[in-house]
């Protein structure tokens, strides 16, 4: 260890190669966040549905997703879905589908607790004043619920950035995958993976700090 000769130039030499991977990481995370928010909405609506079969589907789906490893789910989507549907899925598409469903299952809980955090009395007051259930939800419950869900949604984005590194195992060319490829040719895993860890940290840490500050500010209001 002490005699180790650092060769950071092997990393700098491939800086553009790695940054193109980072770009892929952020694109995957961004697209997935949007899809996961939609998936979360669908799951939350199923969970809160008046129809028992819909509720059953939502709850079962959520439980399965939340209680199996994301890596297994990605492998399943990538290798099993093509067998079932007989179509070849791009690794990038498989990653986005897998991550969206996974995060969606968690985001649905975020939505639900956001909606439940609005005191019942607020919608009862609206009900007595004659607002329709839809007006009640849109005007009274939703604006308050959204405030509560924004910080957790942002936290989900941080998680997505980190989870997107799992794309490496199904050969999505994001930054972790590129690091694996690079270290296989420069034989410098220490420099390569340290650099990649620092990149993740420099993106995720400020975001996480910002969210914490934001949450405190919301609570203070």
């Amino acid at each position: 260890m002490f005699k180790y000769q650092f060769r950071w130039d092997t990393v700098w030499g491939s800086f553009d190669f790695l940054m193109a991977g980072l770009q892929m990481t952020l694109i995957v995370s961004g697209i997935t966040l949007v899809l996961a928010m939609l998936a979360g909405l669908v799951i939350a609506l199923l969970d809160m549905s008046k129809f028992p079969p819909a509720r059953w589907i939502g709850v079962t789906f959520g439980e399965i997703i939340r209680n199996t490893p994301i890596l297994v789910q990605l492998l399943w989507v990538y290798y099993v879905l093509p067998i079932v549907f007989g179509v070849r899925i791009e690794s990038l598409v498989a990653l986005v589908i897998g991550l969206s469903l996974y995060q969606g299952a968690f985001i649905s809980e975020v939505y639900r607790s956001g909606i439940q955090s609005v005191p019942r009395g607020h919608s009862e007051a609206a009900q007595v004043l004659g607002l329709t259930p839809l007006q009640n939800f849109v005007r009274i419950v939703l604006p308050q619920a959204i405030r509560m869900t924004l910080p957790p949604l942002a936290s989900n984005f941080v998680q997505l950035i980190k989870f997107s590194s799992l794309g490496a195992v199904i050969s999505v060319s994001e930054i972790t995958r590129r690091g694996m490829e690079l270290s296989a040719t420069n034989f410098r895993p220490l420099e390569t993976f340290t650099f990649i860890a620092v990149v993740y940290f420099l993106i995720c840490w400020p975001l996480a700090m910002g969210i914490r500050w934001w949450e405190r500010r919301l609570q203070a209001q």
Partner: peptide, 22 residues
């Protein structure tokens, strides 16, 4: 009309907005 024990004003709206909503 009803007045509640815990007021149940809508916190994301100003006083005036609370009054004109319905």
């Amino acid at each position: 009309g009803m007045v509640f024990q815990h007021f149940n004003l809508w916190p994301h709206m100003t006083v005036l907005e609370n009054l004109i909503e319905a």
